[in-house]
Write a protein that binds this DNA or RNA. Structure first.
Length: 418
DNA sequence: TCTGGGGTCCTAGGGCGA
DNA sequence: TCTGTCGCCCTAGGACCC
């Protein structure tokens, strides 16, 4: 059996822990640059404030309904998430951190326990120690855990925040209750195709033939179907390191000149390299992407990416930045107004344990140089040392007009009780 | 005027060597 | 030497997740 522990309205809950006046009030959290709504409290959901709503269009609505708007405060959410995950590790060492607000835990060997009581003790401890409310879904497969978790969340009074699918009867009932669009792994495109086939619920989906699913969808959907049938097919994996690292941003305005774009790409590449070193990985390739403003329907649309493969794995800012600039030169097209760019490093391997190239290798001077840069940037601030092709004067500051303090990660922001 | 970012996994289709 | 087939690799892009 597995359990899925999911934090309720995680970002809003984090804010409420340190600002109790937000309890039982509608709260909406915005994306980077205060662009659109990415998280809502139950009260804001009840007012029909949609997910992804561009805030400039919904400002009056929020004002009218007294919805508190907050910029996203990732240092706070990241720290609270780490606290929740640490608590989970006290229950079992096998924790798969699935996202910032949810984790699967492996309950193999726990068969003698009462799963319902165990789930309740997990959520009680997390609530008591962090102030974050959670729901727990327990089932024989990960996809069924997702379903169980949704039931626990939907019926808090009946379930007490914990639901266990431990019989065939419960499984069938749960699948018949789950609309096809609410199945984990079915997005709006697949939903449309399944509805055309007459599938309205997760139960209907499991009634399709394996062959039909395999020939009309990808292996992912076939695995999902087996998982919903109660046959564990989606593996439990404890992710030690990431498989790719990305830094992508939308600009505050469009740029059509290569100078500004190159500067941004260079900075993103440097950030990726720094993140790579932080997890002690090196990359085999980088992907550089560039795109115009997809919301400007009348402007010429352009989206391109370029992959560059290294002869040897590298974590050097110098190598990665150089390659990124080469890549951007090949995909940059004149006359386009660019709104978003990004760098992704992938093909990651452990830095101290990778295949060497017989003839080519990294300049040995890079390693001590990178260590020195990382040390200085950690000691002072992340932009103390920059490359010359990054803009040294200008600061690309994110719009964050409704930012809460970093209560748990910045000494001056710690709450004082008088 | 103002519409996010960071991930994972899969597939199609072309190139290419056996 | 030529040709067809197979399978692998590479790359771009799509679909999904939170």
């Amino acid at each position: 059996m597995y359990a899925l522990v999911d934090c309720n309205n995680f970002y809003a809950s984090c804010e409420r822990v340190f600002n109790p006046s937000l309890q039982k009030k509608p709260v909406a959290i915005l994306s980077n640059n205060d662009g659109c709504v990415i998280a809502r409290s139950d009260e804001a959901k009840a007012l029909n404030l949609p997910m992804g709503a561009p805030i400039f269009k919904w400002k009056n609505f929020c004002k009218h309904h007294n919805i508190t708007i907050l910029s996203s405060n990732y240092p706070l959410y990241g720290d609270m998430s780490a606290r929740v995950m640490t608590i989970l590790e006290q229950f079992t060492p096998n924790v798969e951190v699935y996202s910032i607000d949810e984790a699967f835990i492996d309950l193999t060997g726990f068969d003698q326990r009462n799963f319902n009581e165990y789930g309740k003790s997990i959520r009680q401890r997390i609530l008591k120690w962090t102030g974050i409310p959670t729901c727990v879904g327990i089932a024989p497969t990960k996809a069924l855990c997702k379903v169980a978790n949704k039931i626990a969340r939907k019926f808090p009074k009946e379930t007490g925040g914990v639901y266990v699918i431990d019989s065939e009867e419960k499984r069938l009932k749960a699948l018949k209750w789950t609309a096809v669009k609410n199945i984990w792994g079915i997005g709006h495109r697949l939903e449309k195709r399944l509805l055309l086939k007459g599938c309205k619920t997760a139960f209907d989906f499991t009634q399709l033939s394996d062959d039909w699913v395999r020939s009309n969808f990808s292996i992912t959907e076939w695995r999902l179907k087996k998982d919903l049938e109660g046959i564990p097919t989606i593996g439990f994996e404890i992710k030690e390191i990431k498989r790719s690292i990305a830094t992508t941003r939308s600009f505050e305005q469009s740029y059509s000149d290569i100078e500004n774009i190159t500067e941004r790409i260079s900075t993103f590449a440097a950030q990726c390299a720094s993140k790579l070193r932080a997890q002690k990985s090196s990359c085999h390739m980088i992907i550089v992407m560039l795109r115009s403003d997809r919301h400007k329907k009348n402007a010429e649309q352009y989206s391109a990416s370029k992959t560059i493969i290294f002869s040897y794995p590298t974590d050097s800012t110098l190598n990665i930045t150089k390659a990124a600039i080469e890549a951007i030169k090949t995909i940059f097209k004149k006359g386009i107004n660019y709104k978003k760019a990004g760098v992704i490093v992938t093909g990651l391997v452990a830095t101290n344990n990778h295949q060497l190239n017989l003839f080519l290798h990294e300049n040995p001077k890079h390693k001590p140089l990178m260590s020195a840069i990382d040390h200085l940037n950690k000691k002072f601030n992340p932009t103390t040392i920059k490359l010359a092709n990054q803009d040294l004067q200008r600061t690309w500051k994110m719009k964050q007009e409704h930012l809460s303090p970093k209560y748990t990660t910045k000494i001056n922001d710690i709450i004082t009780i008088k």
